[in-house]
Every structure is written in structure tokens, then in C-alpha cells.
Simulated assay, not measured.
Amino acid sequence: MTTAYGTTEPDSRGRTGLDRVGRNLDRNPDVVVRDVEVTSDGWHVLRRTTFDVRGTDGTWTTQQRETYDRGNGAAVLPVDRARGTVLLTRQFRFPAYVNDHPDGMLVEVAAGLLDEDDPETAIRREALEELGVRLGDLREVTAAYMSPGSVTERVHCYVAEYSPADRIEVGGGLVGEGEDIEVLELPATEALAMIDDGRIVDGKTILLLQWAALHGLVVGQHTQS
């Protein structure tokens, strides 16, 4: 019997049964899960799963894949249509920095993990913490897998309208969680231009800005007639 933390003994977050996740999957008759191994159970969980998969020619093969489970998240693009502005953040992202980003300072929409909340509650919380903005009606654009080759996370993406009166706090994130977030209020035209010139390279941010442009919520140089 294994006694590894997160399997039969609680890990640092009090979790057990981490090696059970995925074993009961049966929605796809062409995939049979054989084994799940927890290889890292830090704040998030890395698993190695062995499964049989039937190809289009009917042949079964055995494969192994590693999945990084950090939970699901939510993101929001606040738009002020009257003034033609959007609210974004800028913060240091080490994974981007170590993978060839010039300084690791990424411009992004506000976002965060759901933790124990539903997506709408979570993104209202994150918008207030990061941007200092109180969101009104939310419009869910999609729930997207941002890196499905290895990361399980699904991000619920929203657009919401705001006005200057809705900016009720300073924002900047939670110091206790090591956050040091700069709030950016930009003309939507500039934000869209930042995609073209490479100043915005974050996937969820590109998705939401382009969706807003396609649906007439923001106007950029490519959406003007």
C-alpha cells in the first residue's frame, strides 16, 4: 500500500486520494485508464497517467501522459464603451520570463483560480482585488482550455461593462499572496494594437480583446469601416 502524501496520507493542503483522479473516466470508449501516479503534490498536482487508446484503425496502444492540475480559473475584460477604454493588469510572470519574454512583465486581463467559488463569484473577487473595480452584469464568452496538451485548467472568460464610478478600490492584488499588480486603463484601440506589436502576448487576453472587437464592444483599427 502506498503511503505517499496526497494518496493515503494528507499532503500539505490536507488532501488525499490525489491518485484516484481520472481512474473512473469512461466517457470515451476508445480510452481506458490503467494507472495514475502522483509525481508532485505541491500547491498544485502533477500526475502521470497510463492509458490504452484505440486509434482510427482500431489498433490499441498504451500511452503515458503527464497532467498539471492547478484547478480551474476565471478571467474578465472590463469595458467602458462610453469612453472607449478597457481595464488590464501588468505583473511579473516568471514562467514567461524564463521562456524568452524580455522582462516577464505581462499585460493581462484580471484572472484567478476559482478555489471553492463558482466562476462568477471568483471573477468578481479577482476584479476587485486586482483592478479595484466592482463588476455589474457579466457576459460569459467561453470556458477555454488554455494549454490542453498538459494543463487541465479550464478558464471561464467574461466581458463586463464598467464606469469610473465602479472603480471603488485601488486594486493591485493581495500583498499577502506576493501580488504586485499594476492597473492599466487603456484606450481599446491601443490595447488591440498591443496584440499586433507584441506587447500583449497572453492567450486569454488576446481572446477576450478580439472577441470584444468582433462583437462591437470595443473598436480598433481593424474593426473600423
Score class of each variant (00 low, 15 high):
18 L>D: 01
194 M>Y: 12
72 N>E: 02
163 S>Y: 02
158 Y>W: 10
63 Q>Y: 04
194 M>S: 14
183 V>Q: 12
65 R>C: 07
198 G>M: 13
169 E>V: 03
65 R>G: 09
64 Q>Y: 00
51 F>Q: 06
13 R>I: 03
157 C>I: 02
9 E>I: 14
153 E>F: 01
198 G>T: 10
24 N>I: 08
20 R>I: 06
167 R>K: 15
193 A>N: 11
211 W>R: 07
86 V>R: 05
32 V>E: 14
154 R>I: 13
215 H>P: 02
174 L>S: 05
100 D>K: 12
57 D>A: 13
10 P>S: 12
161 E>S: 13
101 H>A: 15
167 R>P: 03
84 G>Q: 00
102 P>L: 15
91 Q>W: 12
151 V>L: 02
84 G>K: 04
159 V>Y: 08
136 G>Y: 10
219 V>H: 14
78 P>G: 10
53 V>Y: 04
214 L>K: 14
149 G>E: 15
217 L>Q: 15
188 A>L: 00
53 V>Q: 09
38 V>F: 06
126 E>M: 00
46 L>R: 14
145 Y>G: 05
197 D>K: 04
104 G>K: 03
31 V>W: 08
1 M>E: 04
219 V>Y: 06
54 R>W: 07
80 D>P: 10
134 R>C: 00
125 R>I: 01
145 Y>V: 02
171 G>D: 01
25 L>T: 09
176 G>V: 05
73 G>R: 03
42 G>F: 00
168 I>Y: 04
221 Q>T: 15
60 W>E: 03
118 D>I: 04
44 H>R: 07
48 R>G: 05
100 D>C: 12
52 D>A: 08
223 T>L: 10
216 G>D: 01
114 L>T: 05
155 V>C: 06
160 A>F: 05
159 V>T: 05
114 L>C: 03
185 E>M: 12
70 R>H: 11
64 Q>K: 11
166 D>Y: 01
153 E>H: 08
44 H>L: 04
106 L>W: 02
106 L>H: 03
200 I>N: 07
87 L>W: 06
139 R>N: 12
221 Q>M: 13
178 G>P: 06
135 L>W: 01
83 R>P: 08
154 R>V: 14
56 T>C: 04
195 I>C: 11
98 V>K: 15
17 G>N: 03
36 V>C: 15
205 T>R: 00
183 V>W: 07
128 L>Q: 06
132 G>F: 09
176 G>E: 09
206 I>Y: 07
145 Y>L: 05
80 D>T: 13
78 P>L: 03
5 Y>D: 06
7 T>G: 11
99 N>S: 15
219 V>W: 08
189 T>I: 00
81 R>L: 03
84 G>C: 01
55 G>A: 07
76 V>F: 03
223 T>R: 14
168 I>W: 09
53 V>G: 08
200 I>W: 09
6 G>Q: 06
167 R>C: 11
186 L>W: 11
89 T>K: 09
67 T>N: 00
139 R>F: 13
77 L>D: 03
97 Y>E: 11
214 L>C: 07
115 D>G: 08
103 D>A: 09
52 D>S: 10
